[in-house]
Structure formats: C-alpha cells, structure tokens
Design a protein around this nucleic acid. Structure first.
Lengths: 118, 118
DNA sequence: TCGTTTGTTCGATAAGAATGGAACTAGTCC
DNA sequence: GGACTAGTTCCATTCTTATCGAACAAACGA
C-alpha cells in the first residue's frame, strides 16, 4: 500500500478486506460514485462526482473508497482522475461488483437503481 | 416490515436497501454470523453464533442483520432460531451472497476466509 | 508572478455505532 | 410458584464516522 507515482495510496490485491469494501459501499454518496464510475467508459474527476456536496466532504469519501481498494486515482494536471478497480475486485471477489451494479443477465426489475429508501 | 408471528420485525423484499445490507456486512462479527449461517443446513440459535461475546452485544448485531434483511429470526421455545434470507437476497441482488461467500465456481485461491486484516 | 482551478488537509462539531453490565421478559421444567 | 435458560432492552460510555468551513498545495495559463 505504498504511495504510487501519483501520490495516492492504493491497497494491493492481497490486502483487500471485504469488511472495508462493505463499509466503503455503505454510504449513499459513495455508492453513487461507484455507480457513476461503472457507467462511464472513461475516468472521471472528483468534481464530476461531487453531487453538489462540499469538496472537503467528497474528498473524504474518495479517500475511503481508495483505501478500500474500490477506486484508483491518478493526477492529471490539476485534476484527480478516478476509475473503478474493477479488474482487481473481480479477481478477488468474483461477482461482487456485478451484483452491486445489477449486471445480472436476468431482468431483475427496477432493482438497484434506488439510492435512498423510498 | 410489520412484526411477524414470532415478534420480530423483518423488512420485506421491496424495502431492502443495499446500503443497509453493506453496513450490516461491514462488521467482522456480523460477517462471521452470515458465513456460519450460510455454511449450516439448519437454522442456528443466537448462542451458537455468539463467538464468546456478551449477549447484549450479539443481540445488537442480530438486530442489525435482521433490519437489513440479511437474516430471519423465529422463536422456538426459549431459543431464537436464525437463518439467512438467501432466497430473497438472491432475488433482489442476484450474485451478491454468492460473491460474499466465495461461491464463484472458479478456484479463486484462499480468498474470503480472512475476517480481519492480516 | 499573480490569479484560477482542482482537490487535499486541518480542525471543530455533531451524529451514529459498538460495547457490555444490569435489569427484564418469555418459555420450560420441577 | 420457583429456578433455570435464552435473548432482549435499557443505559452509559467510548469509539468511529460524517460534515463542512478555512487554510493550504499543486498545476496551469496569462
């Protein structure tokens, strides 16, 4: 979990903890970030994923997701670009992300599009 | 989410929240409970799933798991019998429990047997 | 160099969750 | 009824997390 070239700490595959991942995903904003990244073909910066919340709050959420190994951040100029660590997560916990994102193959209704209890 | 015959409140399928499930699963003891129940062919009482912790603490954890819809509790005499709500969870979030429990089909190494970071 | 943009860090506060002892309730058996 | 068992509820304490303004840092362009 050394700081990489871009100055961010990312856990490596062997140290992933399911508890930490679940904790990271138990917050509505963090789940929105994950879904937005999953739906995007390109990395997104923090501003794109702020949902109108203060920068300091979102920076906190990004740090939790990074520390859990859910996303990866790199600097590009003044921006910090984020992407899901989908490959690693799929290797370590096959099916987990697919289940979270509702990629089930079967129609499964309207299921996980709701972020807050109705 | 009305109290059922046995006096416990269980959410019904439509009101399940992924955030609540993740929060429920983000605790090491709760994850142990879930894994033990998944590995058992029969319901287990709270005492069987106490891991040596105080009853009041474990009662708290059972309530969280119940409220999230992860397990179902019924009274049988003085005991409270618990079982995973696997069918409902599989309907609502297909693949989620399988991923958590490491039922991947592929060998996937030693992966999710560790409960606390090494 | 100065100003702008993007995001982090710091610090204080508030909200939420975990813990565990003590008292309590509900069954069961004598 | 009395004793015993299995869990829950209550309560206080402690720990953790979230929130957000303010100050800061780094990259960039004029």
């Amino acid at each position: 979990m050394a700081r990489d070239e871009s100055g961010f700490s990312h856990p490596d595959e062997g140290t992933l903890s399911l508890e930490a991942i679940f904790h990271a995903l138990s917050d509505p904003y963090r789940l929105r970030i994950v879904r937005a990244l999953a739906a995007s073909t390109v990395p997104m910066n923090c501003g794109d994923l702020s949902f109108g919340r203060p920068k300091s709050s979102m920076s906190h959420h990004f740090r939790i997701l990074r520390a859990a190994g859910v996303l990866h951040t790199t600097s590009q100029g003044v921006e910090h670009m984020n992407r899901l660590r989908r490959d690693m997560l799929d290797r370590r916990f096959p099916g987990l992300m697919a289940a979270i994102l509702g990629e089930t193959g079967q129609p499964a209704g309207d299921h996980p599009r709701r972020l807050t209890p109705a």
